[in-house]
Amino acid sequence: MSENTDIKLVEAPDGISGAGFFATSFEKVIGLARKHSLWPLPFATSCCGIEYMATMGSNYDISRFGSERPSFSPRQADILMVMGTIAKKMGPVVKQVYEQMAEPRWVIAVGACASSGGIFDTYSVLQGIDRVVPVDVYVPGCPPRPEQILDGLMRVQELAENESLRRRNSPEYQALLASYNIK
């Protein structure tokens, strides 16, 4: 469901296809830029949101990663950080926010509730946001320590750094989105 960077498809050698050496190193540069400028959209609904505040706080300081500018407008955000329980009433909202985000976009499910429903296996709680949006990184914990949230962020940085500029146009990605009925 999410993109596994460990598995690399065999690519045509450089210079044969359109993307030559220049293009790939250019991609690397953009990957680096993206890596260091991931603006989060803190979709904080409950307890994990407080831990996110701690992550923003002086002791952990998410800004070291270039991610301290929280963009509450989905248009400007790069990562959707879903923190806290997502009830079934809220599910469509998450999806809508995801749809409003501009590519490239990543999703982190922070904490047990967002990832799987956690302790709340109840009629009203969505059992994991991967039922409505594709999730790239899961962070376990209830709530995770700020270190773990930063770990999750670094995981996304890995993804952002190694991602091809064309991945978002690839048929696999389109199929993934289609499976979530997004656009």
Binding site: K89, S116, D121, T122, Y123, Q127
Partner: peptide
Amino acid sequence: LNIEEMEYHPMLKQYPLEDQTRED
């Protein structure tokens, strides 16, 4: 608290607590 479309009153004892769609 619940969505408008809900058809039952969940706290009545006869209704289950769990999310019925959970598979794991």
